[in-house]
Protein backbone atom coordinates (compact mmCIF):
# COMPACT_ATOMS: atom_id res chain seq x y z
CA UNK A 1 0.00 0.00 0.00
CA UNK A 2 1.12 3.56 -0.69
CA UNK A 3 0.65 6.28 1.88
CA UNK A 4 1.19 9.92 0.98
CA UNK A 5 1.68 12.67 3.51
CA UNK A 6 3.58 15.89 4.01
CA UNK A 7 6.81 15.48 5.94
CA UNK A 8 8.43 18.69 7.14
CA UNK A 9 6.75 20.56 4.32
CA UNK A 10 7.59 18.15 1.51
CA UNK A 11 5.65 15.35 -0.11
CA UNK A 12 6.49 11.95 1.29
CA UNK A 13 5.37 8.70 -0.24
CA UNK A 14 5.66 5.44 1.67
CA UNK A 15 5.22 2.05 0.05
CA UNK A 16 4.69 -0.82 2.43
CA UNK A 17 2.76 -2.01 5.43
CA UNK A 18 0.25 0.69 6.46
CA UNK A 19 0.45 -0.53 10.05
CA UNK A 20 4.14 0.38 10.24
CA UNK A 21 4.63 2.79 13.15
CA UNK A 22 5.36 6.27 11.86
CA UNK A 23 8.50 6.45 14.01
CA UNK A 24 10.08 3.56 12.11
CA UNK A 25 9.55 5.30 8.78
CA UNK A 26 11.00 8.53 10.09
CA UNK A 27 14.09 6.85 11.52
CA UNK A 28 14.72 3.94 9.20
CA UNK A 29 13.59 5.22 5.82
CA UNK A 30 14.00 8.97 6.12
CA UNK A 31 16.95 8.92 8.56
CA UNK A 32 15.22 11.57 10.64
CA UNK A 33 16.77 10.17 13.81
CA UNK A 34 15.84 13.15 15.97
CA UNK A 35 12.61 11.31 16.70
CA UNK A 36 13.56 8.71 19.32
CA UNK A 37 11.91 5.32 19.77
CA UNK A 38 12.39 4.75 23.49
CA UNK A 39 9.45 2.88 25.04
CA UNK A 40 7.35 2.33 21.91
CA UNK A 41 4.22 2.27 24.04
CA UNK A 42 3.20 5.91 24.31
CA UNK A 43 4.51 6.51 27.82
CA UNK A 44 7.81 8.33 27.30
CA UNK A 45 7.02 10.92 24.62
CA UNK A 46 10.49 10.76 23.05
CA UNK A 47 8.94 10.01 19.65
CA UNK A 48 6.52 12.94 19.73
CA UNK A 49 5.89 14.63 16.37
CA UNK A 50 3.26 17.05 15.17
CA UNK A 51 0.51 15.57 13.00
CA UNK A 52 -1.62 18.39 11.62
CA UNK A 53 -0.13 20.61 14.34
CA UNK A 54 -1.04 18.28 17.20
CA UNK A 55 1.69 16.69 19.32
CA UNK A 56 1.24 12.92 19.25
CA UNK A 57 3.43 9.88 19.87
CA UNK A 58 4.67 8.52 16.55
CA UNK A 59 5.31 5.03 17.97
CA UNK A 60 1.59 4.28 18.17
CA UNK A 61 0.66 5.98 14.92
CA UNK A 62 0.23 3.51 12.07
CA UNK A 63 1.40 5.31 8.96
CA UNK A 64 -1.90 4.45 7.31
CA UNK A 65 -3.59 6.95 9.62
CA UNK A 66 -1.43 9.87 8.45
CA UNK A 67 -2.52 9.65 4.82
CA UNK A 68 -3.01 13.25 3.72
CA UNK A 69 -1.73 14.67 6.99
CA UNK A 70 1.10 17.13 7.61
CA UNK A 71 3.82 15.64 9.80
CA UNK A 72 6.48 17.83 11.41
CA UNK A 73 9.46 16.31 13.20
CA UNK A 74 12.07 17.95 15.39
CA UNK A 75 14.20 18.41 12.26
CA UNK A 76 11.39 20.41 10.72
CA UNK A 77 10.85 22.65 13.73
CA UNK A 78 14.03 24.69 13.22
CA UNK A 79 15.83 23.40 10.19
CA UNK A 80 19.13 24.26 8.58
CA UNK A 81 20.60 27.48 9.88
CA UNK A 82 17.29 28.74 11.21
CA UNK A 83 17.30 30.13 14.70
CA UNK A 84 16.20 27.83 17.48
CA UNK A 85 12.52 27.80 18.31
CA UNK A 86 12.08 30.13 21.32
CA UNK A 87 11.43 27.13 23.54
CA UNK A 88 14.66 25.48 22.40
CA UNK A 89 16.50 28.74 23.06
CA UNK A 90 15.10 28.89 26.57
CA UNK A 91 16.02 25.27 27.25
CA UNK A 92 19.56 26.00 26.11
CA UNK A 93 19.75 29.14 28.23
CA UNK A 94 18.55 27.25 31.31
CA UNK A 95 21.34 24.62 30.94
CA UNK A 96 18.52 22.10 31.00
CA UNK A 97 19.98 19.48 28.68
CA UNK A 98 21.85 16.45 29.96
CA UNK A 99 21.98 13.22 27.93
CA UNK A 100 19.56 14.94 25.58
CA UNK A 101 17.60 11.95 24.34
CA UNK A 102 14.23 13.05 25.68
CA UNK A 103 14.57 16.59 24.40
CA UNK A 104 13.40 16.28 20.80
CA UNK A 105 10.14 14.78 22.04
CA UNK A 106 9.97 17.20 24.94
CA UNK A 107 10.41 20.11 22.51
CA UNK A 108 7.75 18.80 20.13
CA UNK A 109 5.22 18.30 22.97
CA UNK A 110 5.92 21.59 24.67
CA UNK A 111 6.22 23.73 21.54
CA UNK A 112 2.60 22.87 20.77
CA UNK A 113 1.70 23.46 24.40
CA UNK A 114 3.19 26.96 24.59
CA UNK A 115 1.50 27.82 21.29
CA UNK A 116 -1.91 26.76 22.64
CA UNK A 117 -1.55 27.83 26.28
CA UNK A 118 0.03 31.28 26.46
CA UNK A 119 -1.08 31.79 30.07
CA UNK A 120 -0.19 28.39 31.49
CA UNK A 121 0.79 28.17 35.15
CA UNK A 122 3.63 26.05 36.49
CA UNK A 123 1.27 23.22 37.57
CA UNK A 124 -0.32 23.30 34.12
CA UNK A 125 3.10 23.04 32.50
CA UNK A 126 3.89 20.03 34.67
CA UNK A 127 0.55 18.43 33.83
CA UNK A 128 1.36 18.87 30.14
CA UNK A 129 4.61 16.94 30.71
CA UNK A 130 2.98 13.77 32.06
CA UNK A 131 3.69 11.96 28.79
CA UNK A 132 7.29 13.12 28.44
CA UNK A 133 9.75 11.31 30.66
CA UNK A 134 13.24 12.60 31.38
CA UNK A 135 15.59 10.32 33.30
CA UNK A 136 18.41 12.84 33.76
CA UNK A 137 17.28 16.29 34.72
CA UNK A 138 14.62 16.02 37.39
CA UNK A 139 12.38 18.20 35.19
CA UNK A 140 12.41 21.50 37.08
CA UNK A 141 14.74 23.29 34.68
CA UNK A 142 12.56 22.24 31.78
CA UNK A 143 9.55 23.69 33.57
CA UNK A 144 11.58 26.87 34.24
CA UNK A 145 12.43 27.15 30.56
CA UNK A 146 8.80 26.75 29.48
CA UNK A 147 7.70 29.35 32.02
CA UNK A 148 10.45 31.73 30.83
CA UNK A 149 9.44 31.17 27.24
CA UNK A 150 5.81 32.05 28.00
CA UNK A 151 6.87 35.09 30.04
CA UNK A 152 8.98 36.43 27.21
CA UNK A 153 6.22 35.89 24.68
CA UNK A 154 3.69 37.63 26.88
CA UNK A 155 6.00 40.57 27.39
CA UNK A 156 6.54 40.79 23.65
CA UNK A 157 2.80 40.54 23.09
CA UNK A 158 3.19 37.47 20.95
CA UNK A 159 2.24 33.88 20.99
CA UNK A 160 5.22 31.58 20.98
CA UNK A 161 5.85 30.88 17.34
CA UNK A 162 5.62 34.53 16.38
CA UNK A 163 1.89 35.05 15.82
CA UNK A 164 0.61 38.36 17.17
CA UNK A 165 -1.98 38.06 19.92
Amino acid sequence: MTVTFQLNGEDCRFHGDPMTPLVDILRQERFLTGTKAVCREGFCGACTVHVDDEAVPSCLKPVGLVEGCAVTTIEGLSSGNQALHPLQANLEAADAVQCGMCFPGMVMSLSAFVRDNPHASRPEIKAAMVGNICRCTGYERIVDAVADCLDQARKAGQLVGGINV
Partner: peptide
Protein backbone atom coordinates in the same frame (compact mmCIF):
# COMPACT_ATOMS: atom_id res chain seq x y z
CA UNK B 1 32.23 29.69 35.41
CA UNK B 2 28.74 28.61 34.41
CA UNK B 3 29.89 27.46 30.99
CA UNK B 4 26.94 26.41 28.82
CA UNK B 5 26.98 23.01 27.15
CA UNK B 6 28.36 22.95 23.63
CA UNK B 7 26.21 19.94 22.78
CA UNK B 8 22.91 21.49 23.86
CA UNK B 9 21.86 22.97 20.50
CA UNK B 10 22.34 19.79 18.52
CA UNK B 11 20.62 17.76 21.21
CA UNK B 12 17.69 20.17 21.22
CA UNK B 13 17.45 20.04 17.45
CA UNK B 14 17.58 16.26 17.33
CA UNK B 15 20.83 16.33 15.37
CA UNK B 16 23.07 14.51 17.82
CA UNK B 17 23.82 11.03 16.53
CA UNK B 18 23.79 8.59 19.40
CA UNK B 19 25.01 5.08 18.66
CA UNK B 20 21.51 3.84 17.85
CA UNK B 21 21.06 6.71 15.38
CA UNK B 22 23.99 5.44 13.33
CA UNK B 23 22.37 2.39 11.81
Amino acid sequence: MNLPRRDAQDKLRGRTKYTNDRV
